[in-house]
Each structure stands twice: as structure tokens, then as C-alpha cells.
Design a protein around this nucleic acid. Structure first.
Ligand code: FES
Ligand code: FES
Lengths: 134, 134
DNA sequence: TCAAATGCTACCAATTGCGTATCAAATAAC
DNA sequence: GTTATTTGATACGCAATTGGTAGCATTTGA
């Protein structure tokens, strides 16, 4: 399951992408929290993760705030979920962690799940913020 | 993530499907636990779920044990996961529970995730035990 | 009657999810 | 240079889930 933290993360990035395209600059956490009905403290926490994960850049002090770390077209859902909740779209431990399962070589289930996982990942990588903001 | 319980469940069903095809009958929990290295008590718990979910039939008493509730060709990974760990292959709350999110109508992310979920489900429904035992 | 098998309920420890609270450091405006 | 604003870091709390374990009741074939 995509966690609430990841979900908020996606929407925050989407908001910033919209603002960027409208020529408005970055925005502060407090403004975003207000605007999107996200508990301020919680938002602060997940923003920190996104900054650490190079999705956002931040500027401290008066007039500071947050901005996308790169153009919206180069941030995909895959990138975001990888940082905000890697387990969210991982179908199985066997497939997610190579070498986790000694049966992996012969197991038919592994192959099926692996195929499905690949297709999920491909679709997530195809969805970037730019294509999501219109 | 597919839970360990679900994973064991799949493999137990697969074992029974193999035995069925080889003309051998059902098998008892204690024998399966031994054969597959699954803690007996834990196996008992998940077997109960599969019986309740109509994937297995059980017979109590001496000589009893477990059998597939229907032909292997009519039990899919989707069926199993639906009973053993519904959350395991659900990508998001927004998509899994209709009406959970008021933004669902207009949200682009919802559409993308929805499409991916549909494709996952389709592939899981296409994978039945019979095709997995060769 | 007895052994072999499942049915049922309850418990436990560790992890994860969703937040909250406190304090420190940077920076722009006055 | 003081002050208001804004992010950085750490730690805590509570509820749900996961992965097991334990004990007793019930059914059934020999
Ligand atoms: S059980 Fe691990 S790959 Fe199939
Ligand atoms: S946020 Fe719920 S559907 Fe997009």
C-alpha cells in the first residue's frame, strides 16, 4: 500500500509543479500545510525526507521555503515512491530483495510476480509530474 | 507486500495441486509442515483461513487432512491473495476503497494508479495453480 | 476407547504507520 | 544586532499489523 506519507508527498510535489508552471516561485511548509490540510508537523517530517531524497530543495530563514529539485518532467512517481515508501509498490520480498529466497531460481511464482512487478515499475516510471499537472 | 502468511499459503496450495496431479490424495497439516519447513502452529492458522475462504476443504479425525476445494485450474493467485492478504497487492487506499477519497474524481494520480492496479489484477487472475505446477 | 486430525480463542513480541513535541540553526528584514 | 520566520534533527507516543505460540475442544477412523 502507498502510505499516507507518500500520498501527501506526491500531492505536495504536484502543487509545487503547478506553481512552477504558473511562474510562481516556491512555497513555505506552513503555507502548504494550510493550503492542503496536512498537519504541519507531519508535513515537516515528510518534507525532510523529500529534501534528503533530492526531490526538493529547501531554503531556511525568512522568505525561505521549498522548491522542486529538478524540472517536473524529470520527477516520476517511481522516484517519489522509492523515497517515500519503498514497500508501497513492492509486491513481494522474494522479488524485491535478490537473494532473499533460495527458491528464486526455480520458483514459478517468483517468475509471475517478477513479471508483474516489472510492469508496475515501468508504468510508475512513465508517470512524471509534468504529465500529471494539466 | 505479499505477507509471509500468503506466501506460505500459495506454496501449500501448489504442493497439494502437484499431489493431486500425481494421483496422490490430500495431506495432513503435520505432514505438510514437516515437508515444507513451516512452523506447525503457524501453518494451522493459515490453513484455517484458507478453509474459511473456500480454497481448501478439510476432514477431521484419523486419516483426515486437506485437499484443494476445486480443480487447480480454477484457483488463481488473485483468489489466494484476496483471502490471505488483501492488502498485499493493493497499491493505494484511494483506489482500493471506492469513496475513500473525495478527490478521486478529478485526481490524476488516482487515474494512473487505478490503471496500474487493473493491470496487476488482470495478471494475477491469469495465473492459476495448474499453470504453475509443471 | 484411543490416537490422529482439525476448530477455536487467546496471547505475545517486534515492526510499521501516523502523528506530536522540543529545541537548534539559518537567514532576511528592520 | 535583534527579531521574526523558516527549515534541521531527534525523540516520543499510540494503534494496527505481522509472525508466531499455546491450550483446549471437537470430530472421526480403527
Ligand atoms: S518462494 Fe521465494 S521465489 Fe518463490
Ligand atoms: S488523492 Fe485520493 S485519489 Fe488522488
Amino acid at each position: 500500500m502507498i502510505t499516507r506519507e507518500a500520498d501527501y508527498g506526491i500531492r505536495v510535489l504536484l502543487l509545487l509543479a503547478r506553481r512552477e508552471r504558473a511562474g510562481q516561485g516556491g512555497e513555505s511548509s506552513v503555507a502548504i500545510a494550510e493550503e492542503m490540510d496536512i498537519p504541519y508537523r507531519f508535513l515537516r517530517k515528510l518534507v525532510k525526507r523529500m529534501v534528503a531524497g533530492r526531490l526538493l530543495t529547501s531554503r531556511r530563514g525568512k522568505g525561505g521555503g521549498l522548491e522542486l529539485a529538478r524540472p517536473a518532467g524529470r520527477i516520476t512517481l517511481y522516484d517519489i515512491l522509492e523515497i517515500m515508501g519503498p514497500a508501497g509498490t513492492r509486491l513481494s520480498q522474494c522479488v524485491a530483495t535478490p537473494g532473499a529466497c533460495r527458491r528464486a531460481g526455480t520458483c514459478r511464482v517468483h517468475r509471475v510476480i517478477g513479471t508483474i512487478q516489472t510492469s508496475v515499475d515501468r508504468q510508475l516510471r512513465a508517470a512524471n509530474l509534468e504529465s500529471l499537472v494539466d
